[in-house]
Amino acid sequence: MKFERYGIGIAKGLRVTIKHLFHHPVTVQYPEQRLNPSRRTRGNELIWDRTKCTGCATCAKTCPQGVIKIITSVSTEENKYVVEKFEVDTGYCIFCGLCVEACPYEALFMGYAYERAKYRRGELVQANEMLGASPERRPSGYMHPEIAAQLPRQTLLLERITEEE
């Protein structure tokens, strides 16, 4: 006679859960402990480099959401377009990164920050100088390997848990 369903499965399960009681938890205490995001993070807020931008508007054409607005004027003495207004409504942006990928002059970057919540809707619409890089608005390495190389290594849960192999 073979006995199989006398509670052995329950006992096995109980063993697994009690073992976990003595393992280290995997969660992170967020405001105190911070993990490094991916080097290619498509984080909040686009970063735009005015010096490199030529006003070609490829980004605006690529954006599937149509959130980039560019107004240019022609400067005759320098014989080029001058960007008068570069406006991004980050409230509509889905952070797909297609604009960064499309920019032929590497003037657009995704943001590396992840704590850029705003209190008002109006603050989501950003233009011109607001879009520049700054210490709290670091560009991420998405589509820019040279930036990615300088960013800190991403923390991986895979490497944090060492107890079980």
């Binding site: 859960t17 009690i18 976990h20 009681l21 393992h23 938890p25 995997v26 969660t27 205490q29």
Partner: peptide
């Protein structure tokens, strides 16, 4: 807390 630890998390702390 106990359940949290058994579920590989911390529980309210």
């Amino acid at each position: 807390r106990g359940m949290g630890r058994m579920q590989a998390r911390l529980g309210p702390n």
